[in-house]
Deep mutational scan, measured.
Amino acid sequence: MQIFVKGLTGKTTTLEVEPSDTIENVKAKIQDKTGLPPDQQRLIFAGKQLEDGRTLSDYNIQKESTLHIVWR
């Protein structure tokens, strides 16, 4: 499925993911596209910070959802 990651600059990155992907895995995909290391990424969805060990489905993140990224 496709999801979007929007940064503070307003730039949006598209990712191809599975609902079973962990947040850690998603951060690795973001690094592949942007070069930003996972330890500098904070992902937010529906006002919650996403924890590395959880999956996208744990947070009810579905296709075409938009996550927000904040740099540490």
Rank of each mutant, 00 (worst) to 15 (best):
D32V: 11
E64D: 13
L43C: 01
E24K: 11
D32Q: 12
K29S: 03
G53D: 12
R54N: 09
I44A: 05
K48Q: 14
R72H: 13
K63A: 15
Y59H: 03
L36G: 05
Q40C: 07
I30N: 01
P38M: 15
T9D: 14
D39N: 12
T13R: 05
I30R: 00
L50Q: 01
G53E: 09
I3H: 01
Q62L: 10
K33P: 03
I44L: 13
Q31K: 09
V17R: 00
V17L: 04
I69A: 04
I3E: 01
E51I: 08
K11W: 15
P38Y: 11
A46F: 09
Q62K: 11
H68G: 04
F45S: 03
E18H: 14
E64A: 09
T12V: 12
T14D: 05
I3T: 01
T9S: 13
E16T: 14
V5W: 02
T9E: 12
V5G: 02
Q49F: 14
K29H: 05
K29T: 03
I44W: 14
I44Q: 07
P38G: 10
L15P: 00
I61K: 00
R72C: 08
N25P: 00
L67T: 01
E18Q: 13
E64G: 14
N25R: 15
K6N: 07
Q49S: 10
K33Q: 11
E18N: 12
D21N: 07
T34K: 03
L43P: 01
I3K: 00
T14P: 09
G47I: 02
F45V: 03
S65W: 03
R42T: 15
I3G: 01
T14H: 05
Q49C: 08
P38L: 12
V70F: 13
L8H: 10
K33N: 07
W71T: 13
S57K: 11
E18V: 12
T34C: 06
K48M: 13
K33H: 10
E24Q: 09
L43D: 00
A28R: 13
I61E: 00
T9Y: 14
Y59M: 03
K6Q: 12
S65V: 06
T9R: 08
D21G: 02
N25K: 14
D52Y: 04
L43F: 03
Q62T: 13
V70T: 09
T34R: 03
F45E: 01
K63F: 07
I30Y: 10
N60F: 08
F45L: 04
Q40K: 10
T12R: 08
S20E: 12
D52I: 05
D39M: 08
Q40W: 11
L8I: 13
Q62Y: 10
P37C: 06
L56T: 02
V26K: 00
D52S: 06
E18G: 08
L15F: 06
Q49K: 09
T9Q: 12
F4I: 06
V26N: 01
K48N: 10
H68A: 07
T9C: 08
G7H: 13
R72D: 15
E16R: 09
Q2H: 13
T12Y: 11
P19H: 06
T14A: 11
V70R: 08
L56P: 01
E24V: 06
Q41S: 08
D39I: 08
I44T: 10
R42G: 07
V17T: 03
H68N: 10
D21P: 00
N60G: 12
L43N: 00
L56R: 01
D39S: 13
L43Q: 00
D21R: 01
A46H: 15
A28V: 12
G35P: 02
T12K: 08
G7T: 14
D21T: 10
Q41E: 02
R54V: 05
T12L: 13
I23W: 01
T9G: 15
I23H: 01
P37R: 14
Q2L: 13
D58C: 02
I44S: 11
K27P: 00
Q62C: 05
T13W: 15
Q49N: 09
F45A: 03
A46M: 13
T55C: 05
L50F: 01
E64Q: 08
D52G: 06
I61H: 00
W71G: 11
T12N: 05
L15D: 00
I30D: 00
T22D: 03
M1T: 03
R72L: 15
S57E: 12
Q49P: 11
K6P: 02
K6E: 11
E16D: 12
G10P: 07
G53S: 11
R54A: 09
M1Q: 03
I3L: 05
L36H: 08
H68P: 01
W71E: 12
P38T: 13
E51Y: 06
S65K: 03
A28P: 00
G10F: 09
Q2R: 15
P37F: 10
R54Y: 14
K33T: 07
Q49Y: 12
G47R: 04
S57W: 08
K11N: 11
R72T: 15
I3W: 01
Q40Y: 10
G10N: 09
S20C: 06
E64I: 03
K29N: 04
T9F: 12
Q31Y: 15
D58S: 14
S57Q: 12
Q49A: 11
K6I: 15
